[in-house]
Amino acid sequence: MSDAGTITAQAALAWLVATWPRRLVLAVLLLVPVLVLALGGFRAADPPPRDVAAGMPTDTGAYLVVPHSYFVSDEIDAYGLEDGQTWVGVVVDLTNQGPEPIYLTFNDKTFRLGDEVAAADDSVYEAMRLDLGARLGDAQPGLTYPVALLWRAEAMPDPPAELTLTMQRTVWTEWSIEAGYYTWNATADSYDVGLPLTEAPPQILAEEDE
């Protein structure tokens, strides 16, 4: 048994909660970290994007990407363009580094355009193979495809000489809801590349009506 008057943990706690004002202060102090957590204050700050040069092979996790150039055209042989819109295309070499085919135009988390372009959607709208002039569909693992990634955007009569393409790094993650299923999830890392303006690749242009 401790001597009377010794400062024990019990005694300190008793002092803290002895009166209502002290209880209120204690409650507020305890709530502060909870509030900060709820407001997202404890996240690590996003690292700044890394700059890569056009033509450099870039490992983004899901894909090995060699970005080349960009173009603007409304004559691409693809569907979905609405009035007042044009296609903004990014020419890359793409290799799926994962174990399963990736349907690129569904829920893509890798490719995003910079603010120079008013894109109608954040993610890629259509992907065209430049070797066969057909839609890409599933990107098979290990195959390197020359592709044009297409976004729909507001018509641009005077496109900029350079467009920024952001490539988000992704990791192969197991679902938290259901074990045994995996998907590519975006991380905080990303790469920025400046793409020069070029002509639209002729293989994917719609044939003119005769």
Partner: peptide, 13 residues
């Protein structure tokens, strides 16, 4: 042999 999976490239028409 490495466990990679390949699907139908059905967009070729």
């Amino acid at each position: 042999g490495d466990g990679r999976e390949y699907s139908d490239p059905s967009n070729l028409g």
